[in-house]
Design a protein around this nucleic acid. Sequence first.
DNA 1: TTGGAAATAGACAGACCGGTCTAGCTGTTC
DNA 2: GAACAGCTAGACCGGTCTGTCTATTTCCAA
Lengths: 198, 198
Amino acid sequence: MPSAKRDHLVETALRLFYRDGFHATGIDTILREAGVAKMTLYNHFRSKDELILAALELRDERFRAWLDAAIAPYPDDPREQILAIFDAAETLFQQDDFNGCAFTRACGEFRDPECSIHQAGMRHVCMLTDFLEDLAASAGAGDPESLARQLALLFVGASAAAQVTCSCGPAHCGRCAAATLIDASVVAHSSSRSSTSN
Amino acid sequence: MPSAKRDHLVETALRLFYRDGFHATGIDTILREAGVAKMTLYNHFRSKDELILAALELRDERFRAWLDAAIAPYPDDPREQILAIFDAAETLFQQDDFNGCAFTRACGEFRDPECSIHQAGMRHVCMLTDFLEDLAASAGAGDPESLARQLALLFVGASAAAQVTCSCGPAHCGRCAAATLIDASVVAHSSSRSSTSN
DNA sequence: TTGGAAATAGACAGACCGGTCTAGCTGTTC
DNA sequence: GAACAGCTAGACCGGTCTGTCTATTTCCAA
């Protein structure tokens, strides 16, 4: 059972890793900022890498909650739910502390696919794609899996582009592209179902 | 006028920064790998950051040449030229040394928008978007600027997703999405031109 | 009150970091 | 042969890095 000190440490670690980068943020900086002793860190984690992993897991939980909150206003409209994710991204990208996608950045700094940090990034992208696939299927997409992958690319690209350009424009741009892709997939599915039902 | 030693140093720096990350790669590692003396580095560059910048500039030049080579086989078909970029990306993403987009990763590690390294990333993404805009206009897109931004998002997203998942699948996925977006934009433009000419 | 878990507070070790400096070598041009 | 540009080869500096260790303190439940 995690302790309050542990949770606070992970919270602070996430904030600093996300702001400054994983390699650029040292243990001493995190401990100073969290007001936690080094022995406490090494009681809870075997290494800095394990702290990074815990921080990414916290980030993933937060992101899932954010996704659920983003689609909540449209419980019966999967197309709107998908677009609402990009709308919520536009708000997210405008926040002062926004600094791109923690997972793609973690994978950029930890290249080895066998590395548990890189694997956390893989799992996160899979989670996002699965989430979008459910919505795509509900929206009547002809090929929900393909549409979901495309939407995931758009989301990841929008996040990265927003971080590079320091603008929230990519979210709106991604939303427009998503709408086009969804409609193209749904129309194609409806047309093929009309043909076969005749 | 750059010297052979300087060019070799930048070449080696680019390779190591791209493989291992900017903060994770130290000066001594680069010098050892390049067989160049520290004094030589500091004769040519005022700091590590300047070396990083030179490495990114070299990368940008290489990327522009790669873009030109990717579209060369289809001199008269802008739609195919755009799609060929994603085809070429599929090949690129399968190379052993592929490790995502150097520019979005640089921006991830150097967050400050005033920082010249981050600005190099901004310029690069603008260059790609401009490149795609020319092709989009030639392909008859109704709104070439918007289409170009969407295609840039797809490309950036595909690059990041390929690095995270260690797969070239995102390139193909991006290609499919690009085709849909191009056709949607061109058809919309043709329809609006037909209406106004009647 | 006591015992134990959890946390604190550094010191310490060994390694690495970016950058400065000195002395010397090599190759080229005049 | 001399002068000079470019480069080599580290030593050195002050700092940071991750992780280990010891001694001590704090808090809480029994």
